[in-house]
């Protein structure tokens, strides 16, 4: 079968364009959408921790996390309606569920001294999840996990008065903008 140089160029252009659209539409299981969603949750949650009293901030966190879980389930259902994945992919959801249960258990046992300490402890568990996901499935998540952990540790140990603000801007921002970057540039 013979084709011209131009036809070959056009065919390759079609392949690249369709693959780019497919990856963007399905976003590899919704990963970038989850990052952006939880970036927004973190931003407002930590911002509340900086400017509101402890009780109001705690309620705000519960509402935000509840909304985040509902939105994550909706994203997951939307993606899985379009693409069926092998059974092992569902283990990811179970892993996060287990991690959150262990984080809550750790908070209950350790009885952290302040709201910042609770937030720092939960941040460590969540970032451990990112690192595991990165090692397991998709490398950049591990780097995001390590980066946010470093920022959180520096904020908690050296500038505790601004820990929440740092986490809102750098932690929430890192999650949101890495998700948005991946969505625009993933090929």
């Amino acid at each position: 079968m013979d084709i011209t140089h131009e036809e070959a160029k056009e065919s390759l252009k079609i392949v690249e364009e369709v693959q780019r659209r497919a990856r963007k539409a399905l976003a590899h299981g919704g990963g970038p959408y989850y990052l952006m969603l939880w970036g927004v949750v973190w931003f407002f949650g930590y911002l509340g921790g900086q400017f509101l009293n402890e009780k109001t901030s705690g309620i705000l966190w519960m509402v935000l996390v509840g909304l985040g879980i509902v939105a994550s389930v909706v994203i997951g259902a939307w993606i899985s309606k379009q693409v069926r994945r092998p059974l092992h992919d569902y283990r990811i959801g179970l892993f996060w569920l287990a991690l959150l249960l262990y984080a809550n258990l750790a908070v209950w046992v350790a009885k952290p001294v302040s709201g910042e300490a609770v937030a720092f402890l939960i941040t460590l568990f969540v970032m451990l999840g990112y690192v595991v996901m990165g090692l397991w499935m998709w490398g950049p998540l591990a780097w995001i996990g390590v980066g946010v952990t470093v920022v959180a540790t520096i904020g908690y140990l050296w500038v505790p008065g601004y820990f929440n603000l740092i986490m809102a801007i750098l932690g929430g921002g890192a999650l949101f903008f890495s998700g948005s970057y991946i969505l625009r540039n993933w090929r």
Partner: peptide, 11 residues
């Protein structure tokens, strides 16, 4: 092109 953009075993 669209189907090969998915991971193996995905439908």
């Amino acid at each position: 092109a669209a189907l090969t953009a998915l991971s193996d075993d995905s439908q």
